[in-house]
Design a protein around this nucleic acid. Structure first.
Length: 887
DNA sequence: TGTCGCTGCAA
DNA sequence: TATTGCAGCGACA
């Protein structure tokens, strides 16, 4: 049987792949990969579909080819490959070499010519050539045996041509395709062709005369005098164009078909490069045993571990724990009802595994007693979950030795997935089933069977993976100077977050529903008015419906456009407030429905039977180091508008014997900036207790502070914000509704008065470009791959991130340190009060009546002294019977 | 049902 | 064409 030989046009295919990908792919180290990724996908599809026996990839070299010698302008003016793609070329070649695929390239010739030569010789050897390219020129190589695949839209679709298919589609043979192109020319290769002859005329002439030569010999038969003249005047050009378009199938290259035989890849090399390129999906497809043996680390072998299942409380008391234990609590919890614990898996550092079956609550309580007495240091993955469940049953001692999710987070705060399964694969090339998969593949149909075995085994696999990961991550964090942020900030914070979640926030259900009713009534009235004014009823929430009504039916002035149509954002509508009375009504409708759906309807189902909301505080979400909050997000409860602020009346202490005490940092980010930039004017202003925005205005405008108007102060405030965000004149101008020129002038004036700030910002950008990341006060890192992008806009984004992240991230470090101290002291002093919320620069403690003074002092002391800054930290205190009163 | 774009809330 | 988030809704595959 004849064997297929796949011959790939490397440059063409990676180009297609690069532009076909919807979004850029980029690794943590800033390597762009989407071209390689698309190329490999295409390659794997071809290998699957055609099962070739031979394969090779041809590349162009930079050196000029014989075509350049013939025609200097050949390929002149062609758009250059973007650097993001250029940097992928050598990497692609590395991958292909690791796959043991022979690469072909030759000075003086293009990939086309090599491909043509290989195809011709392959046919002579009795092989079936299959050419893969995105370049239609190569259609001329099609024969009865040689097929040419042209990629279409993206890389997943393609068309396949042999000689017959060519004739069917174009009406002429592959050889005539060259003549066709000789007449028509080719803009992308800068082949001139005949002036004034386009696709249609060229097609007609070829069908009539068969070739360029025949055409030239028979110009007398051409009826159109103009066309005849054109051809006769440009005979040389047509001949040269044809020659340029002709692929040379006689390149003097040594071809040894044995080298093209499909081979096993060099696994070590391939794995190394896939890992570098973060091609986890391709890694998974590789031969498993080969992948595992190539992993640098190995996972603890669970088969070799001694397993003990414990059911009785007495047995728990006899357990001997090591100082550090890897733990996995198996249970169910959703934050609305009390969590259920099925069992606890414990893997000691001496290699013994215990599974505590907690079917009997006494057994669970005994385990928690044991933890509280022995105070082991826990090692886990997402330890907060384990703590949360155990705290519900009385766990107090939660010292965290390591958390592999958080370890990875400090190494790489930008990623979206910290699943243990994912990390196990990345570090050990080991496939670990997640909980769902594991239980699906192991659970029996018999409902009465004891699930202990499954839980126990799952717990062991989890703990073993965690324990295997810990030393690897510990070493990496040490190598990257991340010990401080990990061990002093993030790990001690875990139990604080778990406790905040567990204690929850009490919500006055009635306050919420009452407000909801008021809103609903108002929404009804407004809706009716809007329908009347519009002359029809429609979905006001749908920009797609609202847009046409406002800007077509009512003829209001349309502002910005979005991808889908008219923008109906508040910003746009505010500009046309006076054009029609429907506009303010729509804005009001928006405000009210937002409050209702997000903050009333959204909140109510999350209240548990004790009137508490247990939000999820996430420690591994933000790229800067802040905490985030979900289900619900309690960090964006309205405050700015008086009406929305009412919602805060629903957030109350759990009973009459408690009050809420809130403490917020005053201008923490600007103080951090003052400190990091060592700006004398800012430091002085803060340490003198001045109103910073007023002082900024006075400095920049050169006017005494007393004379600064409200307006001037508010502008200075926007500028101060702008500085933190990595200000652009465009951003400032749109914020302040002033011209870019004025914004520019303001920024310039600001940086003249605060030269140290300017220096600091420039230095952050410079450092980031040099090392790829920026750091905070506690050494937290943020990698910013955009910083060296060739695209101006992307690079600008990178520069702003480089300026903002150290500030935002340091502020996050500081409040985290304060939270840890506050929490520890509440615990040490045995206080009844509880830290229940953190909102980036603010902490809220549900305070027992008789502890108010001590809590207030504790908050101020620990927050203001969390860290020593050149611009001192100042905390404002508030207290009240609801969150609303904390103002 | 899942995903994306738009919109809007907070620091 | 200013930083970090989360969520509801409508539209669409």
């Amino acid at each position: 049987m004849e064997k297929t030989i796949v011959i790939i046009d490397g440059n063409s295919l990676i180009n297609r792949a690069y532009y076909a990908m919807q979004r850029p792919m980029i690794t943590k180290d800033g390597i762009y990969t989407q071209g390689i990724f698309g190329f490999l996908n295409m390659l794997s599809k071809i290998e699957k579909d055609y099962e070739p026996g031979y394969i090779t990839v041809a590349f162009d070299l930079k050196a000029p080819t014989f075509r350049h010698k013939e025609y200097k302008e050949y390929k002149a003016g062609r758009k250059k490959m973007p650097p993001e793609l250029v940097m992928q070329m050598p990497l692609l070649k590395d991958v292909l070499r690791a796959m043991n695929i022979k690469l072909l390239e030759m000075e003086g010739f293009e990939a086309d010519d090599i491909i043509g030569t290989v195809a011709r010789e392959a046919e002579e050897q009795g092989l079936l050539p299959l050419i893969i390219t995105g370049d239609k020129d190569e259609l001329q190589l099609a024969t009865d045996k040689t097929k040419v695949i042209i990629t279409k839209k993206g890389i997943s679709q393609f068309e396949i041509y042999d000689r017959k298919a060519m004739i069917d589609k174009y009406g002429f043979t592959p050889a005539q395709f060259i003549d066709f192109k000789g007449l028509m020319g080719d803009q992308s290769d800068n082949i001139p062709g005949l002036p004034g002859v386009g696709e249609k005329t060229a097609q007609k002439l070829i069908l009539e005369y068969g070739s360029v030569e025949e055409l030239i010999a028979n110009t007398d038969k051409i009826t159109s005098p103009k066309l005849k003249e054109k051809i006769e005047d440009n005979v040389q050009l047509a001949v040269m164009s044809k020659r340029l378009a002709t692929i040379n199938t006689n390149v003097p290259i040594d071809i040894d078909f044995d080298e093209f035989l499909l081979e096993e890849p060099d696994y070590d090399q391939l794995i190394e490069i896939y890992t570098k390129l973060e091609f986890n999906s391709f890694l998974k497809k590789l031969d498993k045993s080969a992948v595992k043996s190539a992993a640098q680390q190995t996972i603890i072998d669970t088969e070799a571990i001694e397993k003990t299942v414990i059911r009785e409380p007495e047995q728990v008391h006899d357990l001997k724990l090591t100082e550090q234990i890897s733990i996995k609590v198996l249970g169910d919890y959703n934050h609305v009802a009390a969590p259920k614990v099925y069992g606890i898996g414990i893997l000691s550092t001496n290699g013994k595994y215990f599974y505590i079956n907690c079917e009997k609550e006494e057994t669970l309580l005994a385990a928690i007693d044991l933890f509280n007495e022995e105070k082991p240091c826990f090692i886990g993955h997402d330890l907060k979950n384990d703590y949360y469940m155990l705290m519900a049953y009385g766990l107090v001692s939660c010292s965290s030795c390591f958390d592999t999710a958080i370890g990875q987070y400090v190494l790489e705060s930008g990623r979206s997935n910290y699943n243990l399964k994912t990390l196990a694969y990345e570090y050990f090339h080991e496939s670990l089933e997640d909980e769902k998969e594991f239980f699906e593949s192991n659970s029996q149909v018999d409902l009465f069977s004891d699930p202990t075995e499954i839980y126990s085994t799952y717990g062991l696999r989890w703990c073993a993976t965690v324990l295997s990961l810990m030393p690897v991550l510990a070493q990496k964090t040490e190598d990257e100077n991340l010990k401080q942020v990990l061990y002093e900030v993030e790990l001690p914070l875990i139990e604080v977050m778990a406790a905040m979640e567990r204690d929850g926030v009490t919500v006055d259900r009635k306050e919420l529903t009452d407000l909801g009713e008021v809103i609903t009534a108002q929404v009804e009235t407004i809706t009716q008015k809007i329908y009347d004014l519009a002359g029809e009823s429609f979905n006001i929430n749908s920009p797609a419906q609202l847009g046409p009504i406002l800007f077509e039916k009512l003829g209001l002035t349309a502002g910005k456009k979005t991808k889908r149509g008219y923008s109906t954002s508040a910003e746009t509508l505010e500009k046309i407030m006076d054009e029609h009375e429907i506009v303010p009504l729509i804005l009001e409708y928006r405000t009210l429905t937002k409050l209702n759906s997000t903050y009333i309807e959204g909140l109510l189902p999350l209240i548990d039977e004790n009137n508490k909301i247990h939000a999820h505080f996430n420690q591994t979400v933000t790229a800067t180091g802040r905490i985030s909050c979900t289900e619900p997000n309690l960090q964006n409860i309205p405050i700015r508008q008086a009406f929305g602020r009412q919602l805060r009346k629903a957030f109350v202490p759990e009973d009459d014997h408690h009050t809420l005490v809130g403490a917020d940092y005053s201008q923490i980010e600007l103080r951090v900036l003052a400190h990091m930039a060592e700006d004398p004017a800012l430091i002085e202003a803060f340490n003198q207790g001045e109103d910073i925005h007023r002082t900024t205005a006075a400095n920049v405008l050169g006017v005494p502070k007393e004379q600064i108007t409200i307006e001037e102060r508010s502008r200075a405030k926007a500028v101060n914000f702008g500085v933190i965000y990595g200000m652009s004149s465009f951003g400032l101008s749109s914020e302040l509704h002033i011209t870019r020129k004025d914004a520019d002038a303001y920024i310039k004036a600001y940086f003249e008065k605060h030269a140290a700030v300017k220096t600091f910002m420039d230095e952050q950008v410079r450092l980031c470009k040099e090392q790829g990341y920026v750091t905070t006060i506690k050494g937290r890192k943020r990698y910013i791959s955009e910083i060296n992008a060739s695209n101006y806009m992307v690079r600008q984004v990178g520069e702003r991130l480089a300026m903002n992240s150290p500030i935002q991230g340091s502020a996050a470090d500081i409040i985290k340190l304060a939270m840890i101290k506050v929490f520890q002291q509440i615990k040490e002093q045995g206080l009844k009060s509880r830290l229940i919320l953190q909102v980036h620069d603010e902490l809220i403690i549900e305070t027992a009546e008789d502890e108010q003074d001590i809590i207030e002092r504790l908050l101020v002391e620990n927050m203001e002294n969390a860290i020593d800054l050149k611009a001192r930290l100042v905390v404002d205190l508030n207290q009240g019977k609801s969150w609303y009163d904390l103002k």
